[in-house]
Design a protein around this nucleic acid. Sequence first.
DNA 1: CACATGCTTCGCTCATGATCGAAGTATGAA
DNA 2: TTCATACTTCGATCATGAGCGAAGCATGTG
Lengths: 231, 231
Amino acid sequence: MKEGPDIARLAALIGDPARANILTALMSGKALTASELAFEAGVTAQTASSHLAKLADGGLVAMRKSGRHKYFTLANDAVAATLESLMGLAAGSGHLRTRTGPKDAAMRQARVCYNHLAGERGVQMYQAMQAKGFLRHSDDALELTELGVAFVSDLGINLAELPAGKAPLCRDCLDWSARQSHLAGKLGRALLSHFIQHGWAKRQENSRVITFTPKGAQQFDAQFSAPQHHP
Amino acid sequence: MKEGPDIARLAALIGDPARANILTALMSGKALTASELAFEAGVTAQTASSHLAKLADGGLVAMRKSGRHKYFTLANDAVAATLESLMGLAAGSGHLRTRTGPKDAAMRQARVCYNHLAGERGVQMYQAMQAKGFLRHSDDALELTELGVAFVSDLGINLAELPAGKAPLCRDCLDWSARQSHLAGKLGRALLSHFIQHGWAKRQENSRVITFTPKGAQQFDAQFSAPQHHP
DNA sequence: CACATGCTTCGCTCATGATCGAAGTATGAA
DNA sequence: TTCATACTTCGATCATGAGCGAAGCATGTG
């Protein structure tokens, strides 16, 4: 009678309304913080924390710490496939909807992530710097190459002036709107400061939104031309 | 935040141990009575009755009255596919329900997945049919090519005789033991029937295990030679 | 008919776990 | 440092529903 894997344990995990809401929100493919997921699920942060721990323990979601945030994603696409299968059953071959999008188009474009640039612009910068060989992953760390050192110096950033301390120079930061990494760390902070000091972009009051001036956007694109996909 | 199909309700339905046992038992494809299912689930008849009512109400099982008996089956193969998908996740996350008995090895080799062939043999067949160009993915659907039509006709299966209806001819079903797809749908069902009718394989009593005869295995391998991996 | 069998309904007990307030920890900002 | 934010842990409350005994239908058999 008891053949095969323990399906009940897993299904019960998905079967709680709050957890199902969390998983449904994560089906968008974006990485979301614990607070955002608490809001999505309609529960308090404490409750969501408990649920997220259970989901992680059950292997349904993966977690990544970033500063004081915790970003959650679905653990892998097998989980997503199973969820979609369940949605299909629940709706009778129904179709999936796209959950609550990011609040603001401007936020998606460019915003402050604590102290560095995030959003599409941030991702663009990160990818361009990798494509040009300025950034390199080694083990779990992100390094600025010699080429990269020259590049930021040319920009006018003095690496020696950056504050010393345990904080890493370069770091990945997961972007909530683009679901891709962008550049954090002391260098990320320095770059954003640079853009603002040189009038490329401005911070909006009472918001995380960053607005690029036309001229600034041009200069930004010149430095960080988006990687071309096949011709 | 309440959007899309109600996945929680459905998952909670599957998430009860007794109901999960019932559904797992029905994965054998056999129609079982309420009492038999009560025994499989390890609960009393009253409790099983309540569970079965809920499962039927939730559209997971179908019921047919016959005299003073009630025969239950899974509602359709979409349900079976979802359950198999859940088993795959559960097996992956390590929470196997212990007791890897002798039955387990046989189950991995070949078993019934509701009404079609699963396990290593099922995966072998699926991959061979893809490698030989009998099956092809298009968009999200799985199609039988013209070559494939000829192949199954040669086997002695009359596609025109298959029951009409909205059920798909070919469908992916994720194998929980092999973690790869095998063939479900009306064709998958027809193929398994064919193997059994022609004495290639036999179903074991009270189990999902399928045993191939030596001769049957030979014929099976001849038709579905496993794709060779280059050294 | 009486009687047995298969299943269902009722009513009750009881364990599980979802929830949130309050307090605690970690990290970043000023 | 002091404050703010993000998340976690603890403790207590409370609703849900699984489980079963007992009784009630329904449908067979002798």
